[in-house]
Design a binder for these strands. Structure first.
Lengths: 229, 229
DNA sequence: CGACACTTTGACGCACTTCAAAGGGGGTGG
DNA sequence: CCACCCCCTTTGAAGTGCGTCAAAGTGTCG
């Protein structure tokens, strides 16, 4: 049983564990077999959940808010591989070390699962195994789509990015960005200034509106789609 | 048994099947559980092994030469995701469609395996399952490393590329490039001209030598490493 | 030998970066 | 509640790395 594996990873997590899991049920977070067990942990914004090359002993499910995975180059350039939102699983690696680090974009809560426990449970549970397989597939797809994005022009990258995060909240067109311009820039392989100018030019083209820094209204997704490539 | 699944995928493959498998043993191709079964198929250079969005019914092991995986943008831009060399497995997807196409860079030979057969065999064979899991992990790592490459400068990209293909033939520093400049450019997200100029400037820096179009001598890997970022 | 595809080189233009400075917004303390 | 500060965002001007276009050079195959 996975529940046997629950240990106090941090004192904070230990204290808040039960209360948080109870809170989580009210958050509209998708429910799966992962939700019943695992250690609830909170992270302040910009704090590190795990670092590059650290042992990948845990697998995480994001309970609330937003996480980014990063890779740093020697000269300080930063690559944000992906943003994860509530309900997403992250931190699963085929190798035993994390090739990227994970940080909280804003104050966030995760459920942590012992990798060994999950993997050994999967050995005898084909449904779980399928879930993990699908997860790896999604990660691969995500990485490949990002590759494709990185060969596009600045405007195309920003438009693609907006559509991608817009998909997650399809119903209304108001998108609340959890990350700042620097995060977006490092995700798209651009500078902050270029991101800003691209957003502005999308606004001029009536594709979007920018009521505040962090809120974007997707006024015309068709224009955005046409600008994607 | 997988051997039951062997069918004639193409007439050519059918005819050459046995003879090719016999030839393959002499090629120094790494041997694994995959080599005993599967359909040997040959492809002329630039011919397509499978296309984007085609059903992913087969998994392939490259017996000889070189394969590239491609994605095309609407306006004709091409992204080469990866090059595969003899012994590599490719074409395994979590989804049931190939998200990228695969083409032969030069005349090449592959062994094809029914995906269903491999997957169902893996269900009862944990060693094979581990092999497939590791393969997905490699693909993910490859994609992520490529992401990182695409945020670098032209010179850094070319240097990284040379070191990567240089790793495969570590012993001597003579690298025989199977692909042309356009393939390299489309892999690195650059133009042919920029690739050429970067190679020339690496030659001027005494990092490499270019005796012919397709042969590159890695004269100083330390310089290349320093130029990687 | 000639046709062809690929590679290389040069000149020029542009998209994005860099550098600099001004313009909010939100939080804290008085 | 206002004032101040800090961080983030935005804008402008100038620089540059890479793309584009054009043409010459090189290897290969019939």
């Amino acid at each position: 049983m996975l529940s046997d594996e629950i240990v106090a990873v941090s004192y904070l997590a230990h204290l808040r564990n039960r209360a948080m899991r109870e809170q989580l049920t009210g958050f509209g977070v998708p429910v799966s077999r992962f939700d019943r067990v695992g250690i609830a942990m909170s992270f302040f914004r910009n704090s590190e959940i795990y670092g590059e090359n650290e042992p990948a002993d845990y697998l995480y499910k994001l309970a609330s808010e937003t996480i980014r995975t990063c890779k740093l180059l020697a000269d300080g350039r930063r690559q944000i591989g992906a943003f994860y939102t509530a309900g997403d699983l992250f931190g699963l690696e085929a190798a035993d070390k994390h090739p990227v680090s994970a940080e909280a974009v804003v104050d966030s809560t995760v459920l942590a699962f012992k990798r060994n426990a999950v993997m050994s449970l999967a050995a005898s549970n084909s449904a779980l195994q399928g879930e993990l397989w699908a997860l790896m597939g999604q990660e691969l797809q995500r990485a490949r789509r990002h590759n494709l994005l990185l060969i596009k022009t600045a405007l195309e990258r920003v438009a693609s990015f907006l559509l991608e995060i817009g998909e997650r909240s399809e119903i209304n067109s108001n998108v609340e960005l959890p990350m700042n311009r620097r995060d977006i820039a490092d995700h798209l392989g651009l500078t902050v200034e270029t991101v800003v100018r691209s957003l502005r030019s999308l606004e001029v083209a009536s594709a979007i509106a920018l009521p505040t820094f962090k809120r974007i209204v997707l006024r015309d997704r068709e224009i955005l789609k046409r600008m994607c490539s």
